[in-house]
Structures are given as C-alpha cells and as structure tokens.
Amino acid sequence: MELDSLREAFDRVIEKRASSSAKAQEVIDQIVNEVEQAITKMQMMNTDSMGSADHSSVLAELKAKLNELAPLNQLEGCQKELNVALSKYLKLLEKSFSPDISKAYRNVDFEASTINSIIANHFYRQGLFDLGDSFVCECGESDGAHLKFQFQEMYSILEAMQVRNLQPALSWAAKNHDQLLQNGSMLELKLHQLQFVEILTKGSRDEALKYARTHLVPFASLHKAEIQKLMACLLWAHRLDQSPYAEFMSSTHWEKLAEELTHQFCGLLGQSSESPLGVAISAGFQGLPTLLKLTTVMAAKKQEWQAMKQLPVPIDIGPEFQYHSVFVCPVLREQSSDENPPMLMPCGHVVSKQSIMKLSKSSSRPFKCPYCPSEAVASQCKQLHF
C-alpha cells in the first residue's frame, strides 16, 4: 500500500533527523571542551602573572584546533542526508495525496439530522461530552444526545478503574449479570479476581478470604481451576510479587479488563465498541489513494467508475476493517455478490453460481468438479451464506 511507503519515508526522515541531531551535539561538545580548556589555561596564566602575549598564543592554539575540527564540514554531511530524505518525503506526499478528492467518492444524499446524530454520538463515545453538547446545541439536533448518559456512566467506570477503584464496575456487572452470561462474558468474575488481588496485596489475608467466600464461590463450579490459583495466593499475602502467581499483579490485567468492559458496555447498548464514524474515516483514508489512481486511469479510458456495481480492482484497507467474510471464486477469480453467490457442491468444494452454470452449460447434465474427480448436477449445489 502507498501508506506503507509513506511510513517508511517518514521513518527515514526521523532516523536522519536523530543522526543529524546526535552529530550536532557531538560537535558542540567538542567545541565546548576545547574552549573550556583554553579558558582554564588563560586563568592559570593570570594566577602566574604571565603576560597577555601568552593569552594570544592560547587563542591561536584554540583557533587552530577549531579549524582542525572543521565543525561545519562535519555537520554538512549529516544535514545533506537529512535534506535529501526530507525532500523525498515531501515529493512522495505530493504524489500520494491529491487536494481534489471529489472524483473518488459518490454523491450520496444524507439527511443532515442523521449526520449530526452520528457526529454527536462520536463525541460522546470518545468521552468528549462538552464538545458533544456544544455541537448538539449549535446544530439544533437533540436526538444526537440520546446515548450521552450511558457513555457518561461508562467513562465514570473507566476513570474509577484508572485509580484502581473497581466498585462502579462491579456494580454495573452485577446489574447486568444475566446479559453478560448470555454473551459468554466472564467480565464479572475477572473484576472480582482483580478486587481479590487488590485486597490481598493492600489489605489483610482474612479480608481477602472473606471476599472470596462471598463473591468467588458462585463461580466455583465452572471456574474451579482459576479460583484454586487465587486461593493459593493467600499463602503469599503481602508478598505476592515474589510468588509463582505474580502475574496476577500485572497491570495488563487492568488494561485488558477496561477494554473488555468497554466492549461489553457498548454491546449491551447495541453499539459497536469502536466509533462508526472513526472507522469509516480511517478506512476511507486508507482506500483513498487507490480510488484516486483508479479514477485517473478510468478517466483516461473515458469510463465512469461510479456506474459500476463492483470495482475492477481490490481496495486493500487492512484486516482491522474486515468485519465480514468475503468469497472469491477460485474458477472465475471474481468476488461473490448477491447475483453471483458462493455455492457448495456435494463434494465439499465451493465455487460461484456463475461457475456452476458455465460448468453445467446451464443444463441438468452432470459436470465434473474443477478440483476433484467428483461429479454433480446444478440442482445438488447449495447456496452458502457467510
């Protein structure tokens, strides 16, 4: 992807910048060292009541040493390499990004209220409540604030977790106990585990044992092994960091649990854990260079890409933006669509519907699977749904 080449060029600029800075500091240190030595010599001469002629000799010696160091020549090479890397990066930026992106998107009529609601929800989802309120006030769309209070609750829980206060999170998990279990999440147990470890490390062994009997016992039947490890931690009270169970104290548990809580909280609200607006913009940003290049090529051929149902080239936006399975027919090498869905043959191989029609010549006659000796008829093939 073009973004990869941009990152590499940017990394080279950073590398050359660091090298140039280090070299400059080295030269400065050398100059300072020579000057300090000259000053020391002149101060010693003053104490010995020697004449100013000797000062002149020291200064002449300093000048000779500085000329020998040739600081400008030393810095010139590094600076030149930095300028070359920076120049290449700027040219690559100009080549990769076009100021006019109007050719790379379709004109779609969106309702202003829908867009405003999406933007407001994005601000609230990011915890920018003041900004979201200002936006809602200015656009006059009160519907955009319907998730504000739920996200305020979520961020208050996350802020409490940052200071190792699990009570708000535990209260929320207990209130949504049944729904979390239906989702297959053990968030509540993990919260109790962290709370148990906190009590054991900062409180007393008796308090930790009492907490375990109250809150961990209900999970014992399904999570016996985990709870046994926690009970073994009681033997290492106040020195858990020196025990075989020191990993329970890792800060990564808090970070992962905060991520899981965010995911589950948004899921129970019927929302994705990531901002839809942020995902759409990020995905569009990655796909934009390819689309711009495509529009340029097709314009030269006097073709209009916006009239196509399917783009002639794949848009690689990375696995983090792939939320659904995509099937590409191994025979026609085309991506499946509603009109050309994937079909499962009796032998277990999958090809597109158009491939089956071509192989069977649009009749009921048997045809051979392109990947094994098995034969099938079109009526035996079943459509797959991903």
Rank of each mutant, 00 (worst) to 15 (best):
Q150S: 13
Q152L: 07
Q152N: 08
E153W: 08
E153T: 15
Y155F: 15
Y155T: 14
Y155M: 12
S156H: 15
I157Q: 03
I157W: 05
I157H: 04
A160S: 15
A160P: 15
A160C: 12
M161D: 00
M161S: 01
M161P: 02
Q162F: 14
Q162K: 15
R164I: 07
R164M: 06
R164N: 08
N165Y: 08
N165T: 15
L166D: 02
L166W: 05
L166M: 07
Q167P: 10
P168T: 14
A169I: 05
A169L: 04
A169T: 06
A169W: 03
S171W: 11
W172P: 13
W172Y: 09
A174G: 12
A174M: 11
N176Q: 12
N176A: 06
N176M: 11
N176C: 06
H177Y: 10
H177W: 10
H177S: 12
Q179F: 01
Q179G: 01
Q179S: 01
Q179P: 02
L180C: 01
L181Y: 02
L181H: 09
N183A: 05
N183S: 03
G184K: 07
G184V: 10
S185D: 00
S185V: 02
S185P: 00
M186K: 03
M186H: 03
M186E: 00
M186L: 03
M186D: 00
L187D: 00
E188T: 03
K190A: 04
K190Y: 04
K190F: 04
H192R: 15
H192C: 14
H192Q: 15
H192W: 15
Q193P: 09
Q193V: 13
L194H: 11
L194C: 13
